[in-house]
Nucleic acid binder design. Structure first.
Lengths: 261, 261
DNA sequence: GATGCTATTGAGTGTGCGACCAATAAGCAA
DNA sequence: TTGCTTATTGGTCGCACACTCAATAGCATC
């Protein structure tokens, strides 16, 4: 009989296999870093041969970009959900800050630092990073506009307020890989105080606990990434369609749009 | 006669050769990125053999760390000089903000993103990054304390103010590799307004031009790095001496301290 | 049960990296 | 001038990577 390794090969549908590859790549990106998203590493994880991965992603750069896209989108959907049925905008904003200072958020910060650096060399990734930054801006702006409409927040420039908050969070997250013990309290609260000032809120309004009401306050970045695979696939297909519609080089987007082929 | 390539080998003093190597590595780090600081790349730049580089840096990781150290220290000395003979603290602070929003500053931001990411995998670099972060905190805190003593600034927590300002600058610099066109004015001014609030300054006090007095407002990151080589060598020797004094493994620091041997 | 499509494998190419080591020669000192 | 120290060379090894392509074998369809 044959040895226990090298099982019988399993032939899956392209859609299923591709989703599996992307989910695995996103998990590796989140836990080990984007440069660990290699054909060999992903293949090993799925116990297939590296050639199979490049069959679905002829250019490895596309896989890395999509891994980041999925991981970041999963995070965004958890931190700033599009639908907010369980509380007020102020509560969701307080929850966002509470989650953004937790341990689990370090994985996210690391991922963003990673992506921002790697995008220096990889144009495809750079585009995805830019798109995800805009998506974050949009999401937070929408939350703020909602709060303004309900009279919870007061600002004339919701988008500017959103970007200011995100810049501060980026600055705080920049140290996710280094030591940042004994930070002064004013530094830890910098994102909150920025929001309070930009949204004309009394000091302490957004501090957890209390401000979040009954909203759940825990999340797992890797689980969020798993859940984001189908959404990201749809988004990628959409973006690719937009590209091929406006540009004369549809094959450039083929590798990210192939999920629906 | 021999061909033009492969000139006669030149034997330099260890100190001179090492300084040359470090300066080259720092320049590569600043312009191309820390992962381009390889034995081969540095050797090629100096037209020597790669083996020579590993003769001075038995572990390549130490070279990368020192390249960052030199580049970052050169930048810091230019942006926030230790001696400030030509103006008031407020003027030097205004100059700092002016320089931090210029084009040349993108190279610095890129370098910091690079180092913060790479330090995830490289402990030696991580230590240097932490040390340079503390050095930045110290430098800005000292400037603020000077301003407080002269009655220009007002704060009870100079260090907290310094860190807040640096966090915001990190956040703004995080996008050095991506698009960040059409940022709202409030975002561009975020570092200034943070400083104004933390130091109890009237709005607009730190805006350039005008606030900087006659201080020079241009600098070249690569030139700053060149000039920092001897200072960084002294600093490295100091740090290494401290290490070997307190720990029982002096050979671990040998590669960075070898300059004085 | 036979057939055809294609998902999947297996093997091989070329590149760049750090690390290692013996041989060589530059330049200083006797 | 001679000799010695060691800075410098040249070559080699093993590893990990992306990419290419012909051969193989699931699995659905007829």
């Amino acid at each position: 009989m044959s040895s226990s390794v090298q099982r019988k090969r399993i032939r899956k549908s392209p859609e299923a296999r591709r989703a599996e590859i992307v989910a695995t790549a996103a998990r590796i990106a989140l836990t080990e870093g984007l440069e660990c998203v290699t054909l060999r590493r992903v293949a090993e994880e799925l116990t297939v041969r590296p050639g199979l991965i490049s069959h679905y992603f002829p250019s490895a750069e596309d896989l890395v970009a999509e891994a980041f896209s999925v991981a970041a989108l999963g995070e965004l959907d958890t931190l700033l959900p599009q639908e907010r049925p369980d509380g007020t905008p102020a509560q969701y904003l307080a929850r966002y800050f509470a989650l953004s200072s937790g341990e689990a958020y370090d994985d996210i910060s690391r991922l963003w630092i990673n992506a921002r650096h790697l995008s220096r060399y990889r144009p495809v990734l750079r585009d995805v990073v830019t798109r995800m930054e805009l998506a974050s801006d949009d999401r937070l702006e929408a939350l703020i506009l909602d709060g303004v409409a309900r009279g919870e927040f007061r600002t004339d420039e919701a988008r500017s307020a959103a970007i200011q908050i995100l810049v501060v969070l980026d600055g705080l997250g920049a140290h996710a890989n280094s030591d940042r013990t004994d930070r002064p309290a004013a530094v830890t609260r910098l994102a909150l105080s920025t929001a309070e000032r930009a949204l004309a809120l009394p000091h302490g309004t957004l501090d957890a606990p209390g401000a979040t009401g009954t909203l759940p306050l825990d999340f797992s970045p890797t689980e969020a990434a798993e859940a984001a695979v189908p959404r990201a696939a749809a988004q990628a297909a959409e973006a690719a369609a937009a590209v091929s519609a406006q540009a004369a080089a549809p094959e450039a987007a083929a590798s990210t749009a192939a999920a629906g082929a």
